[in-house]
Simulated assay, not measured.
Amino acid sequence: MLSFHMMPASPPKLDDLSLPSPLDSSQLQRIATELDLVTIAIAALTRIERVEMRQVAADLQVASLLSDWLDRWSSARFAASTQLDLDRLKALVLIVNRLAQTHQAVIRQNIDYWHQTVQSAQLPIQVPALADYLNNFLTIYQAQIGSREASQIGHNSPHFANDALSAAALTILVELLFYGGATGHLRLWAALLQRVQSID
């Protein structure tokens, strides 16, 4: 089991994200794919566009690491993590943390909607805000990573079924609440490393 020390709140930086041991290319690929799913959730929830994404990257001083990724960014298309450089993946973790912080209100609101559907035995798609999020998530996923090999995301079939994908989207929605905390970048990085370890 990985142990991860949560440091006091301070501006997040790449050096915060340490490694207990080096990662090989297959581990980097799995981390990249997991990050893609989280970033799809952010895109589906917020519809953030390139100008805001560039500003976030500049504020975090990671724009130079992600220049081509930012050039390809569109909330409707999403920019997959095609280059598996460790610092680039760390930079994406910082981006997710900042965006989850910025959009905490909408994240909490949609989680509340989801809890209400559970209590009232409704389907999430019966709530307009949740339906939009789930539909956006499915659309972006199928367009960008639906054709990837199942081995890259740790599942036994080449694609998520829509029900499983919707469930994954709702799970990530809750996770975003924690990834948006003061030490959210550490939480996300620890979760990614633990998932790699559990597969290995």
Rank of each mutant, 00 (worst) to 15 (best):
14 L>M: 04
63 A>D: 15
36 D>C: 14
71 D>E: 15
86 L>Y: 04
61 Q>S: 15
119 Q>D: 11
95 I>F: 02
15 D>E: 15
18 S>N: 05
45 L>M: 11
123 L>G: 02
26 S>W: 12
124 P>G: 03
46 T>W: 02
43 A>L: 05
120 S>R: 14
50 R>T: 05
66 L>R: 08
13 K>N: 10
24 D>C: 07
101 Q>T: 10
117 T>L: 02
71 D>N: 15
109 Q>V: 00
19 L>Y: 08
117 T>A: 07
94 L>Y: 07
118 V>H: 00
99 L>V: 08
58 A>H: 12
100 A>Q: 04
65 L>Q: 10
111 I>Q: 09
19 L>M: 06
69 W>N: 11
27 Q>S: 15
82 T>G: 12
123 L>M: 14
45 L>H: 07
78 F>K: 01
68 D>N: 12
118 V>I: 11
87 D>H: 12
38 V>H: 14
79 A>C: 13
33 T>Y: 13
30 R>V: 03
15 D>G: 00
40 I>E: 03
100 A>D: 07
8 P>M: 09
39 T>Q: 14
15 D>F: 00
119 Q>E: 12
50 R>H: 06
57 A>E: 04
8 P>G: 08
78 F>P: 00
53 M>D: 01
113 Y>C: 14
38 V>R: 13
122 Q>N: 10
113 Y>T: 00
77 R>L: 09
82 T>Y: 09
15 D>P: 00
77 R>Y: 06
127 V>S: 02
128 P>D: 06
61 Q>N: 14
119 Q>P: 00
79 A>L: 05
44 A>I: 09
100 A>N: 06
80 A>Q: 11
122 Q>G: 01
36 D>A: 14
88 R>K: 15
14 L>E: 04
52 E>P: 00
65 L>S: 10
91 A>P: 09
99 L>D: 02
129 A>R: 11
88 R>T: 10
39 T>S: 11
66 L>Y: 08
21 S>R: 15
105 A>E: 12
108 R>L: 13
66 L>M: 12
12 P>V: 04
34 E>G: 05
30 R>K: 13
74 S>I: 03
29 Q>C: 06
21 S>I: 02
81 S>L: 12
66 L>Q: 09
36 D>T: 11
72 R>N: 13
64 S>Q: 13
111 I>E: 09
99 L>C: 11
72 R>T: 07
115 H>W: 05
52 E>V: 01
51 V>H: 08
116 Q>T: 03
49 E>I: 00
122 Q>D: 06
77 R>I: 07
50 R>V: 02
116 Q>S: 10
46 T>R: 03
128 P>M: 01
36 D>E: 11
89 L>E: 07
44 A>N: 08
14 L>C: 04
43 A>K: 05
100 A>T: 10
97 N>F: 04
54 R>C: 10
112 D>L: 11
51 V>A: 12
47 R>C: 05
9 A>I: 10
35 L>Q: 13
35 L>T: 09
128 P>A: 08
20 P>N: 07
27 Q>V: 02
84 L>V: 08
30 R>D: 02
111 I>M: 09
64 S>V: 12
6 M>N: 09
50 R>G: 00
53 M>F: 01
20 P>S: 08
114 W>K: 01
47 R>P: 00
27 Q>P: 02
110 N>R: 15
69 W>D: 15
100 A>L: 03
